[in-house]
Design a protein around this nucleic acid. Structure first.
Lengths: 143, 143
DNA sequence: CTAGTTGTAATGTCAATGATTACAATTGTG
DNA sequence: CACAATTGTAATCATTGACATTACAACTAG
């Protein structure tokens, strides 16, 4: 299965806040228009990003702002915030390998460290990209 | 979403073929017993691995063998064989960003190269692990 | 107070996963 | 040759997550 579009949506949201935040009030309806995604879905993602301390959302009056310097928010922070994988485990392991079979009994010992290596490689690359990179390239393409 | 358990199942299957292949006939029922997964699911995975040229399956008589030297089969080969992600794209991009919004119009330009970087990091790590590593560690834990 | 928003619950649709039953096709062996 | 074991595959089913949508209570600036 693919990683949920919540991830690309969240980055799109940050690009909008940064680009339009000084000029417009960035509401869930505004973001729904730019992403073409239902405003309730947007509000759920905003709630997750807020919960992770990445943005501030104004209750009642409306509008969203970024809570930290852009170069301190990595793709990994966003990826974790929007819960792309359950329990933080990228790979879904088959649940009940047989304890009667020597291989089944040891498959976790054999495999777990390798799965972690792969997952760590993914997360390391996610951590190497920040919203400052997004800001730079957004300005480049909008010019 | 997590990556399908077909991936860990496939590796479990290879470990069984290597460990028991010389002594027993490794059938889908045998593998279903070791993995605790339905034999029809096993047969589907075997079909995908066979289609990728990684194993040979004996029709009628039954039994499975590995088609290549173990150090020539990487985790990436297996990952691709069992179709863990659609179109080979790890990230699901929201489908219709607005063309009326400057950010929506450019979000793919801004983001695609970064998503590819992350996906490549994952695939590179997958490619660095082979079934020879699994064989070595299986023997270690079964001893 | 009112208008515009957010937060959230409740439903609905759709797709993928995995289990399960059933059965035709295949093939070595008695 | 006929049989028994096995593969390949179709057809269902239950469960789960994603995303859309409607509805509405709670909140806040003006």
């Amino acid at each position: 299965m693919q990683i949920s579009s919540r991830f690309t949506l969240a980055i799109h949201i940050f690009a909008c806040i940064d680009t339009f935040g000084s000029e417009y009030k960035v509401t869930s309806d505004f973001l729904a228009g730019s992403t073409n995604v239902n405003p309730v879905i947007i509000r759920k993602i905003l709630g997750q990003l807020k919960g992770a301390g990445l943005i501030k959302v104004a209750r009642g009056t409306g509008g969203t702002t970024v809570a930290k310097p852009l170069d301190e928010i990595t793709f990994l922070d966003i990826y974790n915030a929007v819960e792309c994988v359950e329990n933080g485990e990228l790979f879904h392991f088959h649940e009940n390998p047989s304890t009667n079979c020597p291989v089944g009994r040891n498959i976790h010992h054999i495999l777990d460290d390798k799965l972690i290596r792969v997952q760590s490689a993914l997360e390391k690359e996610l951590a190497s990209i920040t919203l400052a990179d997004i800001k730079r390239d957004t300005e480049k393409y909008l010019a």
